[in-house]
Structures are given as C-alpha cells and as structure tokens.
Amino acid sequence: MPMDAREIEELIRDALPDATVTIRDLAGDGDHYAAVVVSESFRGKSRVQQHQIVYQALRGQMGGALHALALQTSAPPQA
C-alpha cells in the first residue's frame, strides 16, 4: 500500500521537529516523491549523513510502501 505525502511528512517531523518539510508527488501514484528537508540537525553533517537521518525517520518504508524519494537536504542559512 503506497504512502501519502502527509504520512511521509509526519514521519520526518517526528524525527526532526524543527524541520521544514516539502513533499511533492512526482508521478501521482503515491510511490514516487520528492522531498526538501531543511533542519538545523543537518548542520556540519555530510549530504550522505543528512539523507541517512531522513531514511531512518521513514522507519524502513523506503523500498516498500515508499518506492522512490528524490531527496534534497540542508541546514537553514545562518543568521
């Protein structure tokens, strides 16, 4: 059963409460999404580490209920 964008966003926000999360359904099928996640938690971490944090937040759904996720992550700009 596919995941909806709201469920993906909630999982990410549960793990990263400060995050700004934008989810877009790429194919209209509930299986292929793009996500932009901005969180202070990413500061000082490599892109790979940032993506691992998001994948962990998805609790094993990648490759199952969530087939594909194009992911962009970053820390917010410093004031």
Rank of each mutant, 00 (worst) to 15 (best):
T20G: 11
V21F: 04
V21C: 06
T22C: 06
T22H: 13
T22F: 08
T22N: 05
T22Q: 08
I23H: 00
I23Q: 00
I23W: 00
R24S: 07
R24G: 00
D25M: 07
D25P: 09
D25F: 11
D25E: 15
D25I: 07
D25Q: 11
L26V: 02
L26A: 07
A27P: 04
A27C: 02
A27R: 15
G28R: 06
D29G: 08
D29Y: 05
D29A: 01
G30D: 01
G30W: 08
G30Q: 11
G30H: 05
D31N: 13
D31W: 10
D31P: 03
H32A: 00
H32L: 00
H32C: 02
H32Y: 07
Y33H: 05
Y33G: 02
A34V: 02
A34C: 06
A34E: 13
A35Y: 00
A35I: 01
A35V: 02
V37S: 02
V37C: 07
V38R: 12
V38Q: 14
S39F: 12
E40G: 15
E40F: 04
E40A: 15
E40W: 09
E40K: 14
S41L: 12
S41T: 11
S41Q: 14
S41N: 07
S41D: 15
F42V: 09
R43S: 10
R43L: 13
R43T: 04
R43D: 14
R43A: 14
R43F: 12
G44I: 01
G44D: 12
S46I: 02
S46K: 01
S46Y: 02
S46Q: 01
R47D: 04
V48L: 12
Q49G: 03
Q49V: 08
Q50D: 06
Q50P: 02
Q50A: 11
Q50Y: 05
Q50R: 13
H51C: 10
Q52D: 10
Q52G: 01
Q52S: 07
Q52I: 11
I53W: 04
